[in-house]
Every structure is written in C-alpha cells, then in structure tokens.
Amino acid sequence: MKLYYLQIILLFTLSLGAQNTTFTNPVLPSGADPYSTYHNGYYYYTNTVGNKLILWKTKNLAELENAAHKTIWTPPETGMYSKSIWAPEFHIINGKWYVYFAADNGDNNNHRMYVLENNAEDPFKGEWVFKGKIAANPDRWAIDGNVFEYKKQLYMIWSGWEGTVNGQQNIYIAPMKNPWTLDSNRVLLSEPTYVWEKQGDLNDANNPPHVNVNEGPQYLEHNGKIFIVFSANGCWTDYYSLGLLSLEGDDVLDPSAWKKHSKPIFKKSEENGVYAPGHNSFFKSPDGTEDWILYHANSNPGEGCGSKRSPRMQKISWNKDGSPNLGIPVSEDTTLQIPSE
C-alpha cells in the first residue's frame, strides 16, 4: 500500500513538471501587436497594454498564460509620452536590450516613437533607462517602429503620416546612427495603392475618417532574401490583413528596389472564425528549424480595434520563389504542435 501511494505521488509530480506539447489559439485571451525575442533559452514576449510596458518570460510561447511577467516601465502621468503606449518591441543590439514603442500625450496627433535601454543580460533585471524620442526628418506622426540590421547597418521602419493631418498611413525607413537616433531623412517605402489596402466602411461614425492604412512593418529574412510584411486597412475593419514587400535590389533605402505584392498574403477566414488578422511578428522555434508567425485577430466579425484582439501563432512555410507562405489563420478548434525543441 505504501508503494502504491509513492507511485501516485511520483506520477502527480511528473505531471506538474510536464510541458504540454500541443496548444490551440489564442495563446492569451487579449493582447494586440504581439512581439517576441528569443534569448538564452527563453522567449521574451510583449504586446500592447496601453498604459505601461509589460514583459513576459517563458520557454514556451504556447503557455503565456502561466508565464512570469513584469511591468518594466510605467510612463509619467503627464507629458508627450504619457498615454497610448502602443506596439512595444524588445530588441538586443550590441549586447544591450532596447524597447521601442509609440506614445502620445492623450492627443493622437502627437504620437511618436520612443526607446528605453537596459544593460542587463536578463531584461527582467537591471534598470530601464529612457533614451528619448526617435525623431525622423521631417518629424511627423509615427507608430509601429521595427529595427533591423542589413549589411552591418541598423535601420528603422515604421508607419507614419506624410504631413500633419491624419489622412493616410505609409511605411517609412531611415538608417540609424545608433539604437536611439535616426541618421538621415525618412524614405517612403509603401503607401496604400491596391483596392485590398483600402477596404472599410466610411459610413460608420464611430470609426476614423480614413481606411488607407499601411502599418506594423516587420523585417523578415530567409535564405538571403529580404522582405517586409506589413498590415493594411483600418484595424477597425474585418479586412485588416497582411501585405508583402520584397527587396529586388541591394539598397533598402531605394523605393524602386522594393516590389509590393498585388494581393494580401494573410487575411480573414470566415470559415475558421478568424477576423482582422494582422500586426504580426516572426520567431523561430527553439531548435531553429521552424519559422512561426505571431499575430493578433478577432474571433467574431465587427469586433474592431479593442480588447477582443488576441495573440495567436502558427507555423509558416516558404514558396518556391523564396517568399513566405503564411497559410490561412487556423481556427480556435485546431490543435497545433508547439514549436520544435
């Protein structure tokens, strides 16, 4: 009898330590603009919270609900970066941690990009130091900054306005002098041109008076080929989707070197119950053999840009021409294997 109880205790203990090998989407009940960075065996994950910056730490992104998390920065009560903290991204550059985010003073017209720095090996430790605003030339409305290195040069891509009036969001790029300073005038890479980038309902008084949006740019490299995946259409519409820019030349600052694909590469699936999929990021499996997409989406039509957007993830593949094949957003009933370890 004593041996029997010892076996029960052992089995119970093992079950507590076991990691689930499958999961279903969403991986959190709420969380827009998901982003992750893999470092020293852990995924460091974040999403838009709105009034602060929160960082999650986990070995398995499918278990975010049980992951350790920490508020690493709370904005001042007033000032130009005190409100609407959007789309944070954590990057490791030259051995230091940086978090890029958009913020304003309560007036959306004043949204700009900002950055914090941390020298610690583990971003849960050390001190997050406010480095300041990342201003382009000209200094215009800016959100959704993404930083990447190409041919040993650091660049930032983001979504911004051409002028000072909210009428259209474009994708811009600029080289960086250092992780907190842009080094030249901004360059326009993409603006909404195709019909699929301009879908939406202008007759709804509760929605902004425009639907021409390119935002959430994400740098992606595979086998030497360079891409930018971006979100198109207003997030308040079910038509929110992902588009693709492919680098056809060598100069990332040359707009003519980029080709925009004529159709979206990831869009809503009414059959699977996934609406307005977008504002994505990419990550690799722990063993480096698989490529995955993180994105947010709604579970029902008409849920817009609010708290019902939830983070989801699924494995992607690659087309014969080297471009990413994101597939179709999977249903919440689909059981998926966790990223390969």
Rank of each mutant, 00 (worst) to 15 (best):
K2E: 15
Y4E: 14
L10R: 15
S15F: 11
N20L: 13
T24I: 14
V27A: 14
Y35D: 14
H39W: 10
Y43A: 02
T48E: 04
V49P: 00
N51Q: 04
L64R: 03
W73R: 09
P75L: 07
P76G: 05
S82F: 02
S84C: 10
P88K: 06
F90Y: 09
F90I: 09
N94H: 12
Y98E: 10
Y98S: 10
F101N: 13
D107A: 15
N109H: 15
L116Y: 15
L116C: 13
N118A: 13
E121Y: 10
D122W: 09
D139T: 00
R140D: 05
A142M: 05
N146T: 04
K151I: 02
I157C: 05
I157E: 01
V165M: 12
Q168H: 11
Y172L: 07
A174E: 02
M176K: 09
K177D: 00
P179R: 02
W180N: 00
D183A: 07
V187S: 05
E191M: 11
T193E: 12
Y194L: 10
K198C: 10
G200F: 05
D204M: 05
N212G: 10
N214Q: 04
E215L: 00
Y219N: 00
V229L: 03
V229W: 00
A232L: 03
N233M: 01
G234F: 01
C235M: 06
Y240H: 05
G243N: 01
L245M: 00
W258A: 08
K260S: 08
H261V: 08
H261Y: 13
S262I: 12
S269P: 06
V274K: 04
G278S: 04
G278Q: 06
S281K: 06
D287Q: 03
T289Y: 08
L294Y: 01
L294E: 02
Y295E: 08
A297R: 08
N298M: 05
N298D: 04
S299M: 11
N300M: 12
G302H: 07
G302N: 10
K308N: 08
R309S: 03
P311Y: 02
M313L: 09
M313T: 01
M313Y: 06
I316A: 11
W318D: 15
G322W: 14
G327E: 15
G327P: 14
D333F: 15
